[in-house]
Amino acid sequence: MKDPAPIALEQAPILAREAFADGQVVLRLHAPACAARALPGNFVHLRCDALLPLRRPLSLMRADPEAGWIEILFKVVGRGTALLAAKEVGEAIDLLGPIGHPFIPHPERPRPLLVGGGVGIPPLVFLSQHLRRDSLYLPLALFGSESPFPFQPRPSNILVPAMPAGVIACLPLLDDWGIPSRLASGQGFPGCHPGRVTELARLWLEGLDAPARRQVEIFACGPHPMLEAVAALAREFAVPAQVSLEEFMACGVGGCAGCTVRVETAQGPAMRRVCVDGPVFAAETVFP
């Protein structure tokens, strides 16, 4: 049996910190060992405070192996993330990572559809960063959020077929990389689709002919109802989908079985650990 990749334990100083609306924070951390091995879909397990008994798992948004940094985006939802958000540039964070089964694009499916919701957006930014290196892939990213996006949306320079009139806002970073993106929100943000991100995904899939659809693979991360809707879309359009899950986590390395999710396998139902068997799973195993 091949041993899984080692997990680094680093004291990672904060290089940069940026705060956005609704308690969203982006941290850039100096973590060279983690950055060198990080793949889209991986997460880091952070010790937010010496007095908290458990670490907090957070998806990687970007990594620069040459410069040795990683970036995470999170939203303050409780004590751990509040303590993390209060840390300042220069402070070091005890970090375990990278951990987890990553997103795996397939060359026979060169049209990746990336669907992200809220704080589920970061791992899909990381996947975009990887896909742009290979001209084979023609990805489209669709992001939804009910909080103001943790970036300044701007009108896209890239045309996306089948989008409703006026849906022109994009994530500038992806646009600069040449990757088309569109945004959705029920909050009426300008240039965004005034509804669910999965509605945009459906419109795009409906606009493809059958040969093009056979080249699509969906990659998704976000709230559970969004992932459920993505899995239903994938079934309806007969395209494979990979979903990234989250669950309360203790050890983060597969030792405690505290973060399991029920999946369907060829041998029947099974419990899989989100930390090391996931967080990325085939959608049909989680939403059969």
């Binding site: 458990l54 203790a250 973060c259 419990m271």
Partner: peptide, 22 residues
């Protein structure tokens, strides 16, 4: 198979678990 999620919860100075002998 063990117990359904959530199986763990952080508490003051500790944690609860109910893995259920998976």
């Amino acid at each position: 198979l063990g117990n359904p999620a959530h199986r763990i919860a952080e508490t003051p100075g500790g944690m609860l678990n109910a893995i259920g002998l998976q």
